[in-house]
């Protein structure tokens, strides 16, 4: 970037208009979130009569209280935490050693193994055989099924491998002089060096786990195993699209709208809080992978 130069009046106006437009865009990005949040803390009456458009009207926390009383909400929240933490750790445990091995030019058959991995990015059997396979393995309706079936993907291995390849071989040579083997070199030399890259891959895995709903919805029958996103889908999408349920639910204090808002807000809070801290890892992920895909 150029150090702020001296601008002509025309250029200064250009800068102002640009800034103003960006502010408008940023507000557009925020507005739906603000709207839903306001909805969630407004009275059911204000929400159904359409009086909420920006700030809360007739402030109340009854919708939030209603959601927090729902046992299934807490169960699904705990399930999501489990899937996110255990799922991410499983992913790292599988991805990091594989990526390290693939980054070594001396690995015989590296070209073929690399193809074996990368091929799955271009061609996969698709939804149906994948599902039938999970059935064969008895992983449907199982927590461990969710954890293991989505633990690895080729893209993350390649991301990690690219990083390991960029590490100077002199680190390995030095460790080898001291008599270290590959396991020790990975654990004591490469993993400490790769912390930022590992954080990036971990974040990619974690956010995918936190936000994923589709396969959990397809695989899990038992309500006690569903993650938050599946609970959300049941509560927001399924109910809203059947109108009778909507009428039945409304009371003075809360309505379907405010409940929807409250569920959205309560499930979004962790992401919105953590996101500014982890944002840089995603930016890095995009750069490392060339294109996020």
């Amino acid at each position: 970037m150029i150090s702020t130069p001296i601008y002509s009046p025309g250029d200064r106006w250009f800068g102002r208009i640009n800034t103003a437009l960006l502010v408008v865009f940023a507000l557009c990005a925020l507005y739906p979130i603000v709207y839903v949040t306001s909805l969630s803390v407004s009275s059911g009456d204000a929400a159904t009569s359409g009086r909420v458009w920006l700030w809360p009207v007739e402030w109340t926390l009854s919708a939030h209280a209603h959601v927090l009383q729902d046992k299934l909400f807490w169960t699904s929240y705990a399930n999501t935490l489990f899937y996110t933490v255990v799922g991410t750790l499983t992913s790292l445990a599988l991805i990091i050693p594989a990526a390290y091995a693939l980054s070594k030019p001396r690995l015989m058959g590296r070209r073929w193994i690399g193809f074996f991995v990368a091929f799955t990015m271009w061609f996969n059997a698709g939804m149906i055989p994948f599902y039938l396979n999970l059935g064969d393995l008895d992983l449907l309706d199982s927590r461990w099924g969710i954890v293991i079936a989505f633990a690895v993907n080729a893209f993350n291995i390649i991301l990690m491998r690219n990083f390991f390849e960029s590490v100077s071989p002199s680190f390995e040579e030095a460790a080898r002089m001291d008599g270290a083997n590959d396991f020790q070199i990975l654990w004591q030399v490469y993993i400490p060096l790769a912390k930022p890259a590992i954080a990036t891959v971990a974040m990619l895995c974690a956010i995918a786990r936190w936000n994923g709903y589709f396969w959990a919805m397809v695989m899990l029958r038992d309500e006690n195993k569903i993650p938050l996103q599946v609970f959300l889908k049941k509560m927001i999408v399924d109910i809203n699209l059947t109108e009778e349920a909507a009428g039945a639910m409304a009371t003075q204090a809360y309505s379907l709208e405010t409940i929807t808002g409250a569920i959205i807000v309560l499930s979004m809070i962790p992401v919105v809080i953590v996101y500014p801290m982890i944002q840089k890892y995603f930016t890095k992920g995009v750069m490392m992978g060339g294109v996020k895909e």
Binding site: N211, G212, I264
Partner: peptide, 21 residues
Amino acid sequence: TVLYLPHFISVVIVAGIVIAF
């Protein structure tokens, strides 16, 4: 930061917001 934020919101929530709107 503001413009990247919606990327981190799940599709279920986005659908919920669309339905609410």
